[in-house]
Amino acid sequence: MPQPIEAPQGGAHPVTLFLGGDVMTGRGVDQILPHPSKPHLYESYVRSAMGYVELAEGATGAIARPANFTYVWGDALAAIARERPAARIVNLETAVTASEQAWPGKAIHYRMHPANVPCLTAAGLDCCVLANNHVIDWGRSGLAETLATLRQAGLRTAGAGCDQVEAAAPAPIALSGTSRVLVFGYGMESSGVPPEWAATKDRSGVNLLRDLSARSVAAIAKQVGAHKQAGDIVVTSIHWGGNWGYEISTDERVFAQRLIDNAGVDVVHGHSAHHVKGIEVYHGRPILYGCGDFLNDYEGIGGYEAYRSDLALMYFPTLDAATG
């Protein structure tokens, strides 16, 4: 049975995390920053990323350009600083590249210019999860530049790499003493990740989670077991499901619970839908089925107002480092 949230008791070592949903700093957001990418797009209705800036300005007024690197975070930076999280983790849903190798046949391509990476470091992020359906929008050369740019900026990555071993490896974030937060990233076809993006032993790509079977749980348990040490907190970050809709399937719930029961996972960090979804606390551990978008360029786009996609939530779970 799911249990109520309880604060760590005496003798515990509380660790607070910041978990954000999809951070989409490409396209329109990139255009207002100091070093915008070339704006051309290959979408059916919008052929320039500046079109998304114009939609936003039509809805809420002129945006001063170039915006400084903290502008896109608004009041969030002060709110995060007040909580003093030990680790800051988001799903970065864009390529960080100047590549012109747009993935053929893909309807939408997101990219942020590498020179705009200070907008990520300005938020003090520790880990950018990359196992999503936009990280290879500009080809595998774009993925290589994304990985290199983020790492050069001191940002850890999870869920994508130069091969399957690197894509599956956790991002370690040091805590006090020898404890760590270990972030494992996974992407599913249900979120729009093309199957050919899967990393292999000799090809770069994302850490593709092919299904929600018991076999997949066992595989994740093996990966976690190979890295987790006493005092570590394991975050499994999963990009799954479609863009709109509150439904959480039975398969998703069973899978998330099995990750906690059988795979040594302490936090399930789900994302993909452009709006927030349900939260469950299972055996004292949080399951965030969908964290929603934290940053995007959707302002001024109508049609989905009922989902309140304008709500950007910040999640600050506090866990006992000794027990998870």
Rank of each mutant, 00 (worst) to 15 (best):
T157M: 00
T157S: 00
T157F: 00
A158C: 06
G159D: 07
G159L: 06
G159I: 02
A160R: 04
A160W: 06
A160P: 05
G161F: 09
G161I: 07
G161L: 09
G161N: 10
C162T: 15
C162W: 14
C162Q: 15
C162H: 14
D163A: 11
D163V: 12
D163R: 08
Q164P: 06
V165H: 12
E166N: 07
E166F: 04
A167F: 01
A168R: 05
A168W: 00
A169Y: 00
A169Q: 05
P170T: 09
P170H: 05
P170D: 08
A171N: 00
A171F: 01
P172W: 06
P172E: 13
I173H: 03
I173L: 13
I173C: 02
A174V: 08
A174F: 09
L175F: 11
S176L: 13
S176Y: 13
G177F: 08
G177I: 05
T178R: 14
S179K: 11
S179F: 05
R180I: 07
L182R: 11
V183L: 02
F184S: 03
F184Y: 13
F184D: 03
G185E: 02
G185A: 07
G185Q: 03
Y186R: 12
Y186S: 02
Y186A: 03
Y186H: 10
G187V: 04
G187N: 06
G187A: 11
M188T: 08
E189K: 12
